[in-house]
Nucleic acid binder design. Structure first.
Lengths: 335, 335
DNA sequence: TTGTAAGCGTTATCAG
DNA sequence: CTGATAACGCTTACAA
């Protein structure tokens, strides 16, 4: 594993600093500082002169010095398994928008869904003295290091119950799926899940609602990949030729299910209704357009950022649980 | 527009610093510093003692102090239109992996494809004294501010010709598409483009290769959205009922084209062959699986990061142009 | 091999 | 309203 190699330390040219501006404007550095912070308590003329000189020199106060003395970095560390996963992208978008309004920025690090990398990423962020942090889908079962009273907000299904976390009510999602399939009057149902707590909770909700309706269901298991979806569907159709509805724990797997059904000449939703989970961008592009249980990723990201800001501000903050939402499309059709 | 509001500045608790470690280990702070940097020229026993005390105190050197004195931040600023766009996610992945090996991190900012936000983002990053920067799809036609000899690397089709940029050879992509459609012996071809230079270059390559084969083609225009793809396809089929091949400037639009063809009862690829562009994750999930011109986003991100590192290291660096690649799938079928 | 001390760019306190 | 000046946490000549 290639260790962080230190480039030969060629210091970058330094820009003109507060001193130079002060000298050019004929004031003390304290005054310049006040101009760029306080707003109040500085003579309009002086302020004007300072701003002019600063602009002429291309001066911008450096956060380095400021952060050093203030003991804050205005940085929020973000650990994400993999930036290219669309749902994570949406979460990051939510985080960023909230942070941007408060003048804070995101320091990004990837964990690649691996505990060791995650820990390394956390330490890296900590060295940059981030004011707070958010971890998406943490793989660690121990708490992340958090010196200086720093706080981590978790966005991971496996970590519900942690002091501060943002999560989806997966069980409610399962219930929504069941209700939709009952609405379109299906009787021979199946669930395609995956390993992990998330899938288990979705199934619990699904099963509960079916039980209330006096129905049973088959189950099969995949790994959230498209391929596993095709296989699970094949498997289910062997066991249960009358199958007329499938609830799938992820949209990618659902894409596989649609493919299998199509290849076998089964029509969706006429013969088999299908519901996915997450409502990724993909869902509305498949044929037929996929009904899905929406996970409000952007809003969840925004909530996590708010939580983190509260913690940074010294307030307390608890867990936030988001309700999922049914997005009805062609794959479950009209009743 | 909500301006960056300053939270009440409650300084975060400071962790134990280098002094405390020095005191506990009975050495000077210089020695502690050497332990965490130099490796060489420090007595093994001393080193051991220092490391022990540091670990006990949970000490990690803060980059703030180090960066201040070294004149480097080990931060690279990244301006991206929108994190949730899958292709950008892949680019970020490439950037991050290269940077991670050199101990540098990404400071993230979004431009939302808007010139004003982009400029703001750049200034924000600059205040954090980033050592270098990468801009994906810049909307600015003037150069971004770059004090202290800082450098921006561009990843934007509109900016080819800029001193440092990474881009795709779009024209070659168009040629690949034409050759593939000729390979499967199509004669009634069409191009669905969009506004912007990118699309124009793709079309130029496409047209050139067709001309060599003595063929002409129809053209229609969309905006990269799925909906515009469905419309463009409808339009083309009205004008040219014999249509047997379409090259589409983006995978999302191609998804729309597939939908239209399907709804009209046309088979892909038997009746009409379709080629998309980008090879987004979506391409292999559509039905039928979409042949596409692959844009190596991860590698392009990695290249941009390398470029930026060279510039930071004081070396020069020019443009890097990536060749696209045909990814053959079901939508163009076997010959 | 180790210590001393001078900064790095900024803010904050305290006088004036 | 403004100016000195002491931090902030760390690196790095230079001396010992």
């Amino acid at each position: 594993m290639p260790e962080a190699t230190h480039n030969p330390v060629i210091p970058l040219p330094r820009g003109s600093g507060i001193r130079e501006v002060a000298r050019m404007a004929g004031v003390s550095i304290a005054t310049v500082s006040r101009v760029f912070n306080d707003a109040a308590s500085v003579n309009p003329d002086t302020r004007q002169r300072v701003l002019e000189r600063a602009a002429a020199l291309g001066y911008e106060p450096s956060s380095l010095g400021r952060n050093l003395v203030r003991g804050r970095s205005e940085l929020l560390g973000l650990i994400v398994p993999n930036v290219s996963f669309p749902l994570y992208g949406q979460m990051i978008g939510g985080i960023e928008d909230v942070l941007g309004h408060r003048g804070m920025s995101i320091l990004l690090a990837s964990s690649h869904d691996d505990a060791a990398s995650e820990l390394k990423a956390a330490q890296h962020l900590l060295r940059h003295t981030v004011d707070g942090g958010i971890v998406i889908n943490s793989q660690l079962n121990v708490a992340l290091p958090a010196p200086r009273g720093m706080n981590w907000v978790h966005m991971s299904p496996e970590h519900s119950g942690l002091p501060c976390c943002v999560e989806l009510d997966n069980e409610a999602g399962g219930r929504l799926a069941a209700l939709e399939l009952l609405r379109v009057e299906r009787r021979h149902l199946a669930y395609i899940g995956a390993s992990g707590r998330e899938s288990g909770e979705r199934e619990r909700g699904f099963a509960g609602e079916l039980r209330r309706a006096g129905l049973d269901y088959r189950r099969s298991q995949g790994d959230y990949s498209e391929l596993s979806g095709t296989r699970a569907a094949d498997e289910l159709l062997e066991e249960l030729p009358l199958l007329d509805a499938v609830f799938v724990a992820g949209d990618l797997m659902a894409a596989g299910v649609l493919r299998t059904l199509h290849l076998r000449g089964l029509r969706v939703p006429e013969d088999v209704a299908v519901i996915g989970f997450d409502d990724a961008a993909l869902a509305s592009l498949l044929y037929p357009r996929l009904t899905s249980i929406r996970q409000p990723a952007y809003a969840m990201g925004a909530a996590a950022a708010e939580l983190s800001l509260r913690l940074i501000g010294g307030h307390s903050a608890g867990a936030v649980i988001f309700p999922p939402e049914l997005v009805r499309r062609e794959s479950t059709g009209p009743p």
